[in-house]
Design a protein around this nucleic acid. Structure first.
Lengths: 327, 327
DNA sequence: ATGCATCTTTTACATTTGCATTGCAATCCG
DNA sequence: CGGATTGCAATGCAAATGTAAAAGATGCAT
């Protein structure tokens, strides 16, 4: 007889979590009741959390930093700031921002009647998906704002778009192309393909977009894995780039660094993003302070979702600039 | 200077929970960061859970008992059975049923387009409210199905109705009257009052109702606190009563025990309940087995929400009856 | 001021949890 | 056939958590 494969199916995880979170049984009790080791129960719970099978939702989680939100909103001159509280000790940027974005979207989706929602990609958005409560929005289409990378797993463009659509109960449309065109390929020729062309037309009717950004360092997944060979980070930095939004690199003031590169990106151009009704940027981390500011200057942000650490940094540099200007 | 009241406000609880659940900081770390004792953090988290400030949601939590649900559905001859898993050791009926009801309602509200939802009252429903995700259903009205008791706190009729309305983002309408009329008061005269009359007319257009039930024992809050003085539990039991639905007592077969009592209850009559499109009964506990069955026989149940312990008991007695009939 | 009642903090301890280590048995492979 | 490998159960332990009891403040009445 082959060794019996122990069921680590979703059913098993569900039952374990039910007993743990609803009935508040101890892991040992659950283990003995279900005839498995305590270790297995322990791991099941962790796995279920990681998978997003259990969702912990905190009612109105950004009440805490109201003053900070207000002052940062004024400092950046944008419409709204949503701040999640980070753990300053072991600093993980993605978690608080993802959770805050999920909470914000939950509230926003309740009143906003979006039919078309464009999304970027990245780990931050993956966290948000795992935290996001399931919705049913059959009238909504989640639209990929840019092509995908060959490498990269769940937080690839495709995974994010389908993940959002799944959890929101919406349709989706992805961009079946790489982020950057290879050298020598005619952009117009490529975009004239029927399916790509159809997707690009969806950019004209976006009600809202969820954006992310990165700096120019090996921390950035795009810089580490997604850039075309001919494009070195050094060259970008030399040209004044401090980070990217949707694969398009910006300088301190939010100006595009290189038209050549921008034209090689397969996705919505930033100037078109600026015209979208509701633009949400989710990003945190000290290394992202400059690109966040640049994105705001470029007019790409109505709502900024970040954490308190980044918010304070943004505020500090903002007041410095203001003071310097006043002298 | 008066002693500074330590902020146990919602803001404080929110921040503590955010750090604990999102950032997974330890309670000690949170305490030192926020300048309070560890005990305070510990209690805050427990309080926040009890208040329903943090909501733990398990995706599709009743997959585990599919066969049980199916067989019980067939045995009772009703439309659907939803089963939460109980902890057999320390048996708390309310928790699993409340959680299962919350999960079921979340899914149901996504597709059902209810405009009017009638609700009963009781601890089970209070648990459900605490577990229920916040919705926004401005087109929905939550309607109290019966009057309130003088005693009884949050799980009184009023508290349940307003609690449901709050968490669902809906309106509500309560029945400003006691459950039972005092002796000698003319029912028709009372109901002719404008506000009561208006409320009673709402019973004609209910899309769905959420019911509970109790047995005839001191465990029942109604029996313990709500019965008129002249009405003794003994008399009810003598008349064949095994429990109540909406304050109206039934015998084994689901027949009303006493027309006199029924006519003294201020609320929707059971025969009118039977006509409602979607009837959900949430109840569990070994002592409720008979009244649950009676409610089903009376045609008051389309969907039964219960736990696995009660489900198995219901199934056992059902097959016994079937076998006895077959002999 | 003194004693009393109340509330809060501190302290201590038992339980629970997370994780690393060890050891066993089934499988793989030459 | 025998040794290496793998996957899981068992064990043990340190950290985190929940709870109760002691110690200390604080307000109030005398």
């Amino acid at each position: 007889m082959p060794r019996e494969l122990v069921e680590d199916s979703e059913v098993f995880l569900t039952e374990v979590c039910w007993h743990y979170f609803v009935n508040e049984m101890t892991q040992a009790d659950i283990a003995s009741k279900m005839g498995v080791t305590r270790l297995r129960v322990n791991q099941s719970i962790q796995r279920a959390k990681a998978m997003g099978l259990v969702k912990i939702h905190i009612e109105s989680p950004f009440l805490a930093n109201i003053e900070l939100q207000d002052s940062l909103r004024d400092a950046l001159g944008i419409g709204r700031v949503v701040i999640g509280a980070a753990d300053p000790r072991s600093y993980d940027y993605h978690r608080p921002v993802g959770a805050a974005l999920a909470a914000f979207l939950s509230e926003r989706l309740r009143v906003a009647d979006w039919r078309s929602l464009g999304v970027s990609w990245g780990l931050t958005l993956e966290t948000a998906i795992r935290r996001l409560q399931r919705h049913s929005l059959p009238g909504l289409e989640v639209v990929s704002l840019l092509g995908g990378t060959a490498k990269g797993s769940t937080f690839n463009s495709f995974g994010i778009v389908s993940g959002f659509a799944d959890v929101l109960g919406a349709h989706y449309s992805i961009l079946t192309a790489p982020i950057y065109l290879s050298e020598g390929i005619d952009r117009d020729l490529l975009l004239s393909q029927a399916d790509l062309n159809e997707h690009f037309r969806k950019f004209d009717t976006l009600d809202a977009v969820i954006l992310t950004c990165s700096d120019v360092s090996p921390r950035s997944f795009l810089v580490a894995n997604g850039l075309p060979k001919e494009l070195s980070p050094q060259a970008l930095i030399g040209a004044g780039a401090i980070g990217d939004v949707l694969g398009q690199f910006l300088d301190r003031d939010g100006h595009s660094v290189s038209k050549t590169i921008d034209e090689r990106t397969v996705g919505i151009p930033l100037d078109q993003v600026a015209k979208v009704e509701e633009k949400i940027l989710a990003a945190a981390g000290p290394h992202k302070v400059h690109i966040i500011r640049a994105a705001c200057l470029r007019g790409l942000v109505d709502t900024l979702v970040t954490d308190d650490v980044t918010a304070r940094l943004l505020l500090d540099t903002a007041t410095q600039i203001t003071e310097a200007a006043a002298e």
